[in-house]
């Protein structure tokens, strides 16, 4: 047991180093590179050249946003996997991000005040998850094929709705919207509320970690062992919706982070949520910071939406998982 603890601490330490390194690196790398001397003089005298200043002002908030979005999506993935008892659950694949984006877009285009957008995005995500639960529920258990098919159909439904509303938009808005829909990070700070949502879910996740472990063992067993599963489900639903909405309103529907990251982390540290949740948050953040860096540099000076990069990573992993696990819950 001792060595297990050391291993866990080591994993967290390594991930912390990775995330800080990724954040640092993403400030330095880009179409305009920052010269080391500039940084050194910044730390010495607090002054930097104009270029460096501009670059930092653009890159720092974006890198930070990437981290928050990546963390949120990874944790949302973990939550949905518990809720649906399926390791393939992911906000993007199952159309939850799509629902969130569609609601946000509709509210925007209908001319509601801007403050209504995050609320609509949260409702869209929650509504999507509830739809999934209602439509894919199969005599008390979750069949993967049914869940995936339902999710994919819902996702394409949301996609059609989004397409409909997009075509009503004005031509000069369309490229921006299209980029946003592919998952795009702009040079913006993530905003206080999003960070707060993430921290709140991380803390709540820590408190109910053992309950989440138990819920994975099935509803009946969890109830027979003294767990109020309906209350816990509601908490998970709320957490997953808020996290999805927070990241969709900031960066659009970025795909596969919620699928790839928890899967990798389970392989490394096992499936106990007390550890899985914080570790997934760190790894998800790091992964998206790196993906964002790649998106900025691979065809520089042009930029790719970061969602394109995450899909390039996510699609093969998803197909591999699907092939290895087959279409049913292992029993």
């Amino acid at each position: 047991m001792k060595s297990a603890h050391r291993y866990q601490r080591l994993t967290i330490a390594v991930l912390l180093v990775f995330s800080i390194a990724a954040l640092g690196l993403s400030l330095l790398i880009g179409s305009v590179s920052i010269v080391w001397n500039d940084l050194i003089s910044f730390f010495r005298s607090g002054t930097v050249s104009m270029t460096t200043m501009v670059v930092l002002e653009l890159r720092l908030p974006r890198a930070f946003s990437a981290f928050v979005v990546g963390s949120s999506l990874a944790v949302a993935g973990v939550m949905m996997q518990v809720l649906l008892r399926n390791p393939l659950a992911d906000p993007y694949v199952l159309g939850v991000s799509g629902g969130s984006a569609a609601f946000a877009l509709i509210v925007m285009l209908l001319g509601f005040p801007f403050s209504a957008v995050p609320i609509a995005a949260t409702m869209g995500a929650g509504f999507s998850i509830v739809l999934l639960i209602v439509l894919a529920r199969n005599s008390g258990d979750w069949g993967s094929s049914r869940l995936l098919l339902t999710g994919i159909v819902l996702a394409s439904g949301w996609g059609a709705l989004i397409g409909f509303f997009l075509s009503l938009g004005e031509a000069n808005q369309i490229q921006g919207m299209l980029f946003w829909l592919m998952g795009d990070l702009r040079p913006e700070w993530p905003g206080f509320i999003r960070v707060l949502v993430l921290l709140a879910v991380l803390i709540a996740g820590f408190i109910v970690a053992r309950d989440l472990d138990l819920l994975l063992e099935g509803d009946l067993r969890a109830r027979s062992l003294g767990l109020n599963t309906s209350a816990l489900r509601l908490i998970i639903l709320l957490a997953a919706s808020l996290l999805t909405a927070a990241s969709v309103t900031l960066a659009g529907p970025v795909g596969f982070i919620g699928l790839v990251v928890p899967h990798m982390m389970r392989l490394i540290i096992g499936s106990r949520h007390r550890l899985l949740i914080p570790v997934s948050a760190l790894a998800g953040g790091t992964l998206l910071v790196i993906a964002e860096m790649i998106a900025r540099t691979v065809i520089a000076p042009q930029q790719l939406p970061v969602g394109v990069i995450t899909s390039f990573i996510g699609v093969p992993v998803f197909l591999y998982l699907l092939r290895r696990r087959g279409l049913s819950i292992p029993s």
Binding site: L216, E217, S331
Partner: peptide, 16 residues
């Protein structure tokens, strides 16, 4: 019993 995503025998018994 429904099989969980993945759990060790020890953890399964601990959850009881």
């Amino acid at each position: 019993a429904q099989a969980p995503i993945s759990t060790r025998a020890y953890d399964f018994v601990m959850s009881a």
